[in-house]
Design a protein around this nucleic acid. Sequence first.
DNA 1: TGCAAAACAGGAACGGTTATTGATCGAGGA
DNA 2: TCCTCGATCAATAACCGTTCCTGTTTTGCA
Lengths: 150, 150
Amino acid sequence: MIEDLGRAMIEALEEDIREKFRRSGYTLTSQRRAVLDALEEAGGHPSTEDVYLIVKQKNPRVALGTVYQALSVLEEIGVITSKHWAESPTRYDLNVRPHLDIRCTRCSQVSEVPGVELGNLESQIRQNTPYEVQSTTLVVEGLCPNCQKG
Amino acid sequence: MIEDLGRAMIEALEEDIREKFRRSGYTLTSQRRAVLDALEEAGGHPSTEDVYLIVKQKNPRVALGTVYQALSVLEEIGVITSKHWAESPTRYDLNVRPHLDIRCTRCSQVSEVPGVELGNLESQIRQNTPYEVQSTTLVVEGLCPNCQKG
DNA sequence: TGCAAAACAGGAACGGTTATTGATCGAGGA
DNA sequence: TCCTCGATCAATAACCGTTCCTGTTTTGCA
Ligand SMILES: [Mn+2]
Ligand SMILES: [Mn+2]
Ligand SMILES: [Zn+2]
Ligand SMILES: [Zn+2]
């Protein structure tokens, strides 16, 4: 789980991040670096607002729009990914490998679900539609352990 | 596909609809009937706005808020279902049986994908998360045949 | 037919996101 | 090192889909 990676791992990824910026032509500005750091600090799957609040702690001058734009650039160059759940803002993830996340319908906490195998699902879909399939995403919701007690 | 059902089938469902209203305590008002008719007329998987525009043709006094509320009631009592795709408004469906829909990322047209078997996916998920799973939805996007030519 | 409850029309407000504009930054060349 | 110009940024307005609010109309029911 990305939550457990910690600073050491982030620094191991450092060179990869620089490489992606270099290849894209975008510049790794202090704001984009701050957004990346905030994503790490947030730990889980923060919304833009979550990231904004963390970034503002260290640099109160940063604008919300800048965070939106930074996240969009970071996603475009493959440094982060995003996921959408209904009735919830977009959430971002340092884990760019395909994986399953579940969101609590009560407190919005997102956790990763390991060991789920989608099998031949995508090829099944391709065989049964004339559409050119671009993405198939499994959106899972439920009650987190904490909220089950309530 | 619900698009091919036509008026005969809708009238066959008529009694079922009345029954669901009766059991829920909601009343089948003229506006809710108009929304239902509009869903049928729209044919596919219309958004609230789509439904609103059709309803307004016959009754220009109906308010957009009323359409939102009517669709919400119809969904609550199980007469219709809704689905969400990222970057697209909620879409409604007269087909209340579990099934797969794919949305075109270019023109937003939604079509149903038959013959896809999810298998033990949900039980796999339940085994790998402490969350109490409430819903797992497969969200599929692609390019429809028309838009592939463009 | 009369009354309370439900539903409605119209419009304001809302949350998340994108667009616009002018100021600032910073990489690369003189 | 200093300039320059495109990239980025801050601030704020606008946008879109949706919900909420208020006063009015309709409905089911006694
Ligand atoms: Mn994740
Ligand atoms: Mn459908
Ligand atoms: Zn929870
Ligand atoms: Zn299309």
